[in-house]
């Protein structure tokens, strides 16, 4: 590989898009529901399988696979909300118990996927085709370009929707103060379901996009979950701008490491990066900017 700035920028952008999709989901769940969703990786894997089933039974066209992935992700998000949030949110010791419940779901879910689909990995169809494009003088594959276009568009749409719509105001209000939200008539449970469906859908999109390069397997959600967590942590849990900045930073670190040191060291440098960030700012890049839920 050559040390090419254009290549680094494009790779960073595609990684940052996927990390951003996951990290924003984790961040929104944390700040609006007060729960760390460790089952986000399961949502990722589940959405991958959902897209795979759709590709094999319905059609292998891009919209069908993408929509199936998003729908499966949203479904999984709703299931997680039903098990880990709704029965627990007004019980004592909720944050820890919901964390453990989501960990339990991720243990259970991975085993269930293994049981149903078997240990063999599945490959999704190339929904963006096999073409190569030349951009800024370097070759770029279609799936990378699709990711770079698709993820930011969806993210932007979601963010604009959150800024302007009534539902968005409802989610933002709950992120800031759940009791206050209840006092203006926001239903905690319906909002929780909406949030989990939304973030699950984002994770599903990320799953389909990432599965263009990697395979779908029962444990395929683990690494994306960890990277999403790293990004959400480095950005500051609960901060959407922080998560976006951190996604770009981590994507850049990953690309740079892969280019200069080799792929083996990616996790190590990412960890050093996040440890340094957290030691300097224990609440992440943006954790101090906004006063959100502690």
């Amino acid at each position: 590989m050559t040390f090419d700035p254009a290549y680094i920028i494009l790779t960073t952008a595609s990684l940052a898009s996927i990390y951003g999709l996951l990290a924003i989901g984790i961040s929104i769940i944390w700040s609006s529901l007060g729960m760390i969703n460790m089952a986000h990786g399961f949502t990722f894997a589940f959405a991958g399988y959902g897209a795979w089933i759709a590709a094999h039974t319905l059609s292998a066209s891009a919209p069908a696979v993408l929509l199936a992935g998003i729908a499966a992700g949203a479904l999984s998000g709703l299931a997680i909300a039903g098990v880990a949030f709704i029965p627990l949110y007004d019980k004592p010791n909720f944050p820890l118990r919901s964390l453990i419940a989501t960990l339990g779901i991720s243990l259970l879910g991975a085993q269930a996927l293994l049981y149903v689909f078997g240990p063999r990995v599945k490959a999704l169809p190339r929904i963006f085709g096999y073409g190569r494009f030349h951009l800024f003088g370097i070759a770029i594959t279609a799936d990378k370009l699709g990711t770079i276009i698709c993820a930011p568009v969806v993210l932007l749409a979601v963010l604009i929707w959150a800024r302007t719509s009534r539902r968005g105001l409802q989610i933002r209000a709950m992120m800031q103060n759940p009791e206050g939200a209840a006092l203006v008539g926001v239903g905690l449970r319906s909002t929780a379901l909406a949030v989990m469906a939304l973030t699950g859908g984002l994770a599903g999109l990320a799953a389909v996009l990432l599965s263009q390069t990697y395979y779908v397997s029962p444990y395929s959600g683990l690494t994306p979950l960890l990277k999403g967590m790293i990004v959400a942590l480095a950005g500051g849990l609960g901060s959407i701008p922080g998560a976006l900045i951190a996604a770009v930073c981590i994507g850049f670190v990953e690309t740079l490491t892969a280019v200069t040191l080799g792929g083996k060291f990616v996790l190590i440098t990412q960890f050093l990066f996040i440890i340094v960030v957290l030691l300097i700012r224990p609440r992440g890049i943006a954790g101090m900017l906004e006063q959100t839920r502690e």
Partner: peptide
């Protein structure tokens, strides 16, 4: 060392990541 500065979920996730880091290192 990080435990004196980082707390709560941040620490939990950090240690989780550290475990995964060890696994990747050992496997490779």
């Amino acid at each position: 060392i990080p435990a004196t500065r980082i707390d709560g979920f941040y620490y939990a996730l950090l240690t989780l990541g550290l475990t995964e880091l060890c696994r990747v290192y050992v496997v490779q």
